[in-house]
């Protein structure tokens, strides 16, 4: 068994496509119309085109909003991405106007930061000291 695909709910798929590709730097892998304006929309890391796909899934189900509102209020991220250098990524994203709810925080070997993906989720980035 392997993890081939994981997903985050997004308020608006077009907005999510922009944020996850133009701002975060992922590449679009699949974009298949599913009817009623929904798409099977996935992105991958540019240096791992055959790696795990992230599905940007429409957040239409009524359970999604209360679930995400409660998590966002407490600052809890819904996904975590690995980066080489959290500080550098923080500077880059901050300059692009990304809102962070937790600035880079070094805790032992691990540094993390948490930002808002503008599509309803908080995302954590993490790097491990070499």
């Amino acid at each position: 068994m392997r993890i081939h695909l994981t997903s985050v709910f997004v308020d608006d798929q077009a907005k999510a496509e922009h944020f996850y590709t133009e701002i975060l730097g992922f590449e679009k892998k699949h974009d298949i119309p599913l009817g009623e304006e929904a798409r099977w929309l996935t992105v991958v890391a540019p240096d791992e085109p055959d790696g795990t796909e992230l599905l940007l899934e429409p957040a239409g189900h009524p359970a999604v909003k209360p679930y995400r509102d409660a998590l966002v209020k407490d600052g809890i991220p819904l996904a975590q991405f690995a980066v080489t250098d959290v500080e550098a990524e923080y500077e880059r994203l901050h300059a692009l106007g990304v809102r962070f709810t937790q600035e880079p925080l070094a805790m032992g070997q691990v540094t993390t930061a948490v930002f808002d993906d503008t599509c309803g989720n908080l995302i954590q980035i993490a790097s491990q000291a070499q």
Binding site: D74, G75, I76, P77, T101, Q102, L105, M107, T112, V114, L122
Partner: peptide
């Protein structure tokens, strides 16, 4: 700090 950050620390 958010609750999440306090818990992490």
């Amino acid at each position: 700090q958010t609750l999440f950050e306090i818990c992490s620390r």
